[in-house]
Amino acid sequence: MNDPKSRPDSDLDALFALARTHRPDTSAAEFAFETRLQARLRALEEAGPIWAMVSWRLIPFFAACVVALTIWHSEIVSDTHHEERMAYVQNLDYVESIGTFNL
């Protein structure tokens, strides 16, 4: 106790001991708590099932899926377009060669 370094800690311990004896009185706040809670639970249940609320949290996941699908789709489309262009060019060469032959 005479050690000055231990003094702040003993002060702190004394304060904690004092705080433990002064518990906040919550009796007024507790009054009719069950009724208020039941009313809120009823309102939550009437608002919709819990999965409806949870589904909002899944929005980032679904958004990521949409972006991934869009990228995948655009790659497929560009590949298809490339193949179509190649087929068109080949077809054009063939038509031109026929035209030259006829002349």
Binding site: L18, R23, P24, D25, T26, A29
Partner: peptide, 12 residues
């Protein structure tokens, strides 16, 4: 609206 953490003691 309801009891604050009671601090009747100035040190508290």
């Amino acid at each position: 609206a309801a009891p604050e953490p009671a601090a009747p003691h100035p040190h508290l």
